[in-house]
Design a protein around this nucleic acid. Structure first.
Lengths: 344, 344
DNA sequence: GTGAAAGCGCTAACAT
DNA sequence: ATGTTAGCGCTTTCAC
């Protein structure tokens, strides 16, 4: 596919009757090169259609100006906002983003990480797959001292910075809100407890229940893949319980909405009969009826902060003591969980 | 940041008492190397923590196994499914994806394209920004014969393959459906006519109106950025018209839903008073009430086909005559546009 | 200020 | 089947 030969700094040097090293220096604004000459070099470079060869440059310099990103899935609203935020920051700082997805498989994750390592990314931005059990596949990065940042779905590691929200608190707040509305028999629909995001939300839920002396039965916790379909199935399970739970706190909006939709089909009124709270503040949650109460989750900011922190680490501008960055979340109260007249 | 020296094929060669070229050949499964030796090489490589240096390899080979992607925005459901599809295919074929977004600005698009060119991507996957007026910023790619594929928001170009759906037909079908339901005063909310996706949908709409001898007034076409907010504004404009239109065909689901929501707030019944059709089949459209009639749009497949075609082109396996790939869409009829008893 | 020259690590022609 | 060797294009001492 590649045809014509590329213009190199040697070609420019020849055309100008100077040496390649001077061209190299001139092109990157080295102070030793006379301004006059610099201009000529730039001029000639443009004229000849010069394109710098990053491989050769990288080969010498040992860095790539590339950040690796690996996430469970690309096709969720939350993840796309995160990545959008990362792209903004990376781009402005002169970094490229190489993106891959694990599709929730630990194996695919390991393979992706390996590829990114071979691609010699300067740093890594990671949100773990639901199946990941340990961090051994990151060892090459740790050994080489290449910075790794975990965001959202993290794993505690002394060498890594984590960017998260306080999922425990969010889970606690969501549940407390339901309790304050008079709901008592509250069920939690969550994801794999291997992942901090889901275990924290779950324990937050439990704590809130306990603090209010509400019982948590063994049927009160359903673990799903948090897909819409998973939510439909969970709803079917719940509909067989008697008594029916009077509220559901789901660890994401998709499953919350699936449950809401199935319950309504079954003639259950939301929020009068059953209250529902989701998680993520997906745009769906504000247009659906009734509006879904949910936890707002700063995706774009999470992406921006993760990327900018990573870049600082790469440049050695980051203090080593930094370990965790916690972003603030907020409970967005809509109609799906409000029994009383008060409304927002 | 980079500390310890990397292990090279020379180190492996030394350790094994053989030459670097044999190691190189062994590592990539060259048939000339004895199986026995191959095993030793792999074994040693793993033992020493060898990591292949892609720069050096690329520098020699002149290709990068990297595909550049540039899209208007990353944070839409449609785009994230497209990219997810691309990532699947690229990854399986051993390609990396470098992704950047133009944020609908022609200037940012040009800058992104330039960076991708310098990064020496082997090929380009592009969906144009709404502001792009010509293709001059792609010239470096065309000149060098690097394959470019346009998907969704395309620009006709003899050297490029385009992957699209038939937006004209989709617009025609959406509008015809509304007409068949008895709606007559149908308004279209669309995007920039510079982009095929929006102009085609618009002309499809017009043609359907014309074929049914329905008038298209000058107020019948509102151009917005197709955001939710844009939809809210469009709704405000429409609410001032008298008579009120009795149906809206919007070029995406976000604005359709915004209009639906605003109209309902104003006491207008959907679909009895006003019928609404969107575009994209965003997951929202099936959970909202009433369900939104919309055009299903195969995002993931569009991504997969674009990527696999690009890879074929890079490898020279693609026939040159190929110019456009049209994927099929379908009209998903839900409640928002159905006046009669028939329902799906 | 500018030039000469030695690599960076890998690959591929050529030799054996 | 394996080794030798000459670059790929750039950066970076070290001279001058």
């Amino acid at each position: 596919m590649k045809t014509e030969k590329d213009v190199t700094i040697y070609d420019i040097a020849n055309a100008l009757g100077i040496s390649a090293s001077t061209v190299s220096r001139g092109l990157k604004g080295h102070p030793y090169v006379k301004n006059e000459l610099k201009k000529q070099i730039f001029q000639k470079a443009r004229e000849m259609g010069y394109q710098q060869n990053k491989f050769a440059s990288n080969l010498r310099q040992k860095y790539t100006s590339t950040l690796g990103v690996i996430v469970p899935r690309l096709d969720s609203y939350f993840m796309s906002t995160v990545i959008s935020g990362m792209e903004n920051v990376a781009n402005q700082a002169g970094y490229n983003l190489i993106i891959s997805q694990s599709l929730e498989s630990a194996k695919k994750e390991a393979a992706g990480i390996f590829t990114l390592f071979n691609t010699r990314v300067d740093g890594l931005l990671v949100s773990l797959s639901s199946g990941t059990e340990d961090l051994t596949h990151f060892d090459p990065f740790f050994k080489k001292g290449i910075p790794v940042i975990f965001f959202d779905r993290i794993f505690e590691h002394s060498q890594c910075v984590s960017v998260i929200i306080n999922n425990y608190k969010a889970g606690y707040e969501a549940t407390s809100h339901l309790i304050s509305q008079g709901y008592k028999n509250i069920v939690h629909i969550g994801g794999s407890l291997l992942r901090n995001v889901y275990s924290d939300r779950y324990y937050g839920y439990r704590q809130a229940m306990e603090d209010n002396r509400l019982p948590v039965g063994e049927n009160s916790h359903i673990i799903t893949d948090l897909s819409f379909t998973g939510g439909v199935q969970a709803a079917a399970t719940l509909l067989q319980q008697s008594p029916l739970p009077d509220a559901v706190f789901a660890a994401n909006d998709s499953s919350a909405i699936a449950v809401m939709s199935e319950f309504r089909k079954a003639g259950i009124r939301i929020p009068q009969d059953v209250g529902i709270v989701g998680f993520n503040d997906d745009p769906v949650s504000r247009v659906i009826e009734p509006g879904l109460t949910t936890i707002h989750y700063p995706g774009k900011e999470m992406g921006e902060i993760s990327a900018s922190t990573l870049i600082k680490m790469i440049k050695g501008e980051q203090q080593d003591v930094l370990n965790t960055i916690v972003l603030s979340h907020s409970l967005i109260i809509r109609q799906s969980s409000v029994k009383t007249r008060s409304n927002i």
